[in-house]
Simulated assay, not measured.
Amino acid sequence: MRNHWQARYPNRPTDDGWAGTGYSPRTDLALEAHALAKRRQPSVPGVTEEHEELEDITISRVKVTSEAGEQAIGKKRGSYITLDIPGLRHKNPALQDRVVDQLEVEFGRLFRLRKHAKILIVGLGNANVTPDALGPKVVERLFVTRHLFGFMPQLKQQGYRTVAAIAPGVLGVTGIETSEVVKGVVEHVKPDVVIAIDALASLSLSRVNSTIQIADTGISPGSGIGNKRQALDEETLGCQVYAIGVPTVVDAATIANDAMELVLDTLRRSVPNNTATPLFDQFNGREKWQMIREVLEPMGNNLMVTPKEVDDFVDDVADVIARGLNLALHPAMAEADPPVAH
């Protein structure tokens, strides 16, 4: 069986890496990309990673510091903060409040905004497709102020920043590239900072609907599902661009691979001298994943999959992110209810 695989892929790498195979797991998370790179070498040059354990929340900070690091994990130079919150999958108001507070802290540390900075928030994705609707749903819940300052200029002195928000839709609905829409708005609004929010793809079922990533490197909409559009970053928009994302989908090959590993592990423990596990143990993780994807794709079955509870989850996590952003962008909101324009 292994010889058959070698004959079909004579140029495949001999290590456990993914680069150069023509196949790559679909992940937008720097933490997962770093984990893949560490399979090839325990210490990845130009990349550092540290962890912090809080109540029900694990915070991982990956920093890419050099070109070698960029090439090793396929992520731009910068900082990537990942909050793993398994309990986020369940409606737990107390936990959601703790996540909001932690997001306020992490946003404040990363954004480093001037007192009167002008911010444009971009909610990426398709509002009509629930797993892709995170960005538009966050935008709906933001406290935007740009239009208010003309009527209530005193807000600038009360701890509120100039915030505008847009949900530009997707190419398939509007016929306009997202980057074109955002560039046009940026040219008119002239923000100091752009914050882009999007649904992501993960390499792990355990991180779907339970992880939030924050980055200071911008974002490439759709990259995690193989539909990469022009990046929204400092180079294309001319200002600092931050990204916030939550993985809501994983591809079917990853699910099948995880299931196969669980079956094989059960066979190893419960069926002595079985013949299945030695056969598959000849292959490394990358090769197993490739074989499964090769079987699924010709039949059109390598789908992007999301949990059935995604409707409630996207609403809940959109509310959590919006609340965290509101507090981080408007310091006065931590002390009082927001003012209402009449």
Rank of each mutant, 00 (worst) to 15 (best):
P272A: 01
H330S: 05
K137R: 15
E294A: 07
L103R: 01
G69H: 05
T145C: 15
N274Q: 09
V193T: 14
I121R: 10
A37C: 11
N284A: 03
G324W: 00
L296A: 03
R26Y: 08
K156S: 10
T211W: 04
G78P: 00
G300W: 00
L296W: 04
L124S: 06
I166F: 01
V246K: 12
D281E: 14
D233T: 11
Q240S: 15
L36Y: 02
M291R: 02
N11K: 15
E177C: 14
P307S: 04
L267D: 02
T236I: 07
A35I: 02
A68R: 14
D15T: 06
S210R: 15
M260D: 10
M333A: 05
E140H: 14
K288N: 07
D101L: 14
H188N: 13
E50I: 07
I219S: 02
E104C: 12
S223W: 01
A341P: 13
T217V: 12
I119H: 02
P298H: 05
R109Y: 01
K156G: 13
L325P: 03
S270I: 00
L203E: 09
P338G: 03
L83I: 03
G226W: 02
Q282N: 13
H51Y: 07
D192F: 10
I81H: 03
Q157V: 02
I121M: 05
T58F: 07
T178G: 14
E104D: 09
E70F: 08
F143D: 03
E140S: 08
N273G: 10
V181H: 09
L54V: 00
A231K: 10
M1K: 13
G224Q: 11
Q290W: 02
I176A: 15
P153A: 01
I121T: 05
A259F: 08
L237H: 09
G108E: 08
L95S: 03
V105W: 04
S210I: 09
R12M: 14
V173W: 01
L296N: 06
D56A: 14
R98Q: 14
I292M: 09
V44K: 06
Q213K: 10
M291H: 00
G123H: 06
Y242Q: 11
E294Q: 08
D101Y: 02
V305I: 15
E335A: 07
T58Q: 15
S223T: 11
W5S: 03
R286S: 13
G74I: 00
L134C: 04
A252L: 10
H51K: 12
Y9T: 12
V99D: 04
L232V: 12
F313M: 05
A231C: 13
M152E: 05
A341D: 12
L155I: 00
E70I: 13
V99G: 08
P10Y: 04
L29D: 05
P191A: 06
D198P: 05
D315F: 00
E50V: 08
